[in-house]
Amino acid sequence: MTDLHIVVCMKVVPKTEEVRVNPETRRLIRAGARSEINPPDMNALEMALGLKDRHGGRVSILSMGPPTFEPYLRVGLAMGADHVYLLSDPQFGGADTLATTYTLARGIQRMDGADLILCGEESSDGATGQVPPGLAEWLDLPQLTLVTDVTIDAVARRVCGRREIRGGYELLAAPMPAVVSARTACNEPRFMDYRIKRRAFEEGQVTVWRAEDLAADETMIGARGSPTIVSGLDEARVRERRREFLRGTPEEIAQDLLARLGLLD
């Protein structure tokens, strides 16, 4: 099955420890923060490239975001992906899960579908983890979520995923096409291949689609298509550890600690 087409949904996120909230406007200050590819999406990409190694075919990266995402997504090309599709339009801005999954689904339809759609488990900025099932619903496809390993039967056109469950694991199977979400840290993403890196960064295939290219319903995209509004924003304690010293006899410390951890409920 050399025509196997895998789409990997990826997102560029600011490095978590560098995001701040403006105390007056209560808005996120992303400016100046370094970005990276959402780490779970790297696991999804590795999963896709592993399938391409075994079965051939091509891997496309699909992302929704501003043009500044482009150089980051090219990292995926340098890892071995074949094409980047960036859905970029100011109208897409402010999208919640409903609008995001709708837009991504339109993107997949625009590229005439895929045999497999891989996503990371969740994103480090919003951490909703609801993109994979939402996307599956829009496309009316089966979903295998939180899998740590995936195999495909090219002839029977079936995908099989291994999912960790309490005390063990289960193998789930579904007909392709299907949506699969990769468990965070389930594999080690390969480093960029420097024999193709220059080409990936200078000539690599990047297609940018705007709302009109997707024939998207304007009421379904961006802030307009999003039921959810952010009514407040605050900086939770910065990702510093609490560093609270507990004192007393071992018995007193044990009681104190278990109470603080909520383990005495």
Partner: peptide, 18 residues
């Protein structure tokens, strides 16, 4: 080039990168 390194080494290079 052949992706036959030890486990954990690609992560070291990714850490340099990001």
């Amino acid at each position: 080039e052949r992706r036959q390194t030890l486990k954990g080494l690609p992560s070291v290079l990714w850490s340099l990168y990001w």
